[in-house]
């Protein structure tokens, strides 16, 4: 964890605050576009937010938080109770949404999903790589950073206020997509689903804030052998792998517990995991909060 001081709270849009977090003991850990951090709130909750500042600024991080209507206690706390000057613990940056080198980029953002995209656009434009952004939101007033993005990148940025202009024409964008262009999309489930329907999967990178609704086979029990501790932990059908490990006294860190943030990654040595996450586990890795096992036994590097 890194200790930061909440230097400033800005209001870049309706129902959105941006927090400027300065390192309490000098420079903060470096990061690359697409990275997010866990923010430990005073009410003991931990939430994940994309870093939306400038990676070259090692003194401070910027995150932006929308006040969710059905907040479970994270965004509500940030909006109502956080005060400037308070110290806050922030994790090291984690990146499950890396900007891969490409000859050109199309960025698509919906609402608060713009936070992950802002540093990507800056990096691509700064490197002279052709790129454009289509940024959709309900109303212009609800869209953070719309003004600053237009000012910085001009015509490369298209703002779509869906309440007024209707939804962006993704089919037209897909039809006009150059064969080498890579697409990055972050936003609500509906936008991601629309993108997945029109853009080629191998050139589309998405990041979700909530898991996509999917159905899986019935949850079954399995055993987990922990290679380093030499212990075997049974995982009952009605318990997650993460909970079973934690209850057995083998703590695994957890963030979202919904398979989107990547903080509970564990290394699989043997067995066949059933991946149910929305991060996209690398070979030999799995996310313990949602994923289970196809084989009766898994061996983990724990």
């Amino acid at each position: 964890m890194q200790l930061t001081i909440l230097d400033r709270i800005d209001r870049p849009a309706e129902d959105v605050v941006a927090l400027i977090l300065r390192g309490a003991h000098g420079p903060l850990a470096p990061w690359e576009p697409g990275a997010h951090v866990d923010l430990a709130l005073p009410n003991w909750l931990t939430r994940q937010y994309s870093l939306c500042g400038d990676p070259r600024d090692r003194e401070r991080y910027r995150i932006a938080v929308r006040h969710e209507r059905l907040s479970r206690g994270g965004s509500d706390y940030v909006h109502r109770y956080l005060r400037e000057g308070r110290t806050l613990e922030v994790s090291l940056p984690r990146n499950t949404f890396r900007l891969v080198p490409a000859p050109s980029y199309l960025f698509l953002a919906g609402g608060i999903g713009i936070t992950a995209i802002v540093p990507m656009l800056r990096a691509a434009a700064g490197a002279g790589v052709p790129c454009s952004l289509v940024y959709a939101g309900r109303t212009y007033a609800s869209m953070p950073f719309a003004g600053e993005l237009r000012a910085a990148y001009g015509d490369r940025v298209t703002i779509v206020a869906t309440g007024h202009d209707g939804r962006p024409d993704l089919a037209a964008l897909a039809a006009g997509l150059a064969p080498e262009t890579v697409v990055y999309c972050c936003g609500p489930a509906s936008l991601l689903a629309d993108c997945e329907a029109v853009f080629p999967a191998e050139r589309l990178h998405v990041e979700r804030f909530r898991p996509q609704p999917r159905t899986f086979g019935p949850d079954t029990a399995f055993d987990v052998a922990c290679a380093r501790s030499g212990r075997t932990v049974p995982v009952p059908a009605d318990e997650s792998l993460l909970d079973a490990l934690n209850h057995a006294g083998l703590p695994v860190p957890a963030g979202c517990r919904e398979g989107v943030c990547g903080s509970c990654e564990v290394t699989v040595l043997e067995g066949e995991p059933e991946h149910r996450d929305d991060v996209g586990a690398a070979p030999g890795r799995m996310y313990a909060c949602v994923s289970r096992s196809r084989s009766p036994r898994l061996v983990l590097d724990l």
Partner: peptide, 11 residues
């Protein structure tokens, strides 16, 4: 449901 949804903890 909207009240219970705001109380979700540890999934």
């Amino acid at each position: 449901p909207d009240v219970l949804a705001r109380m979700q903890t540890e999934a």
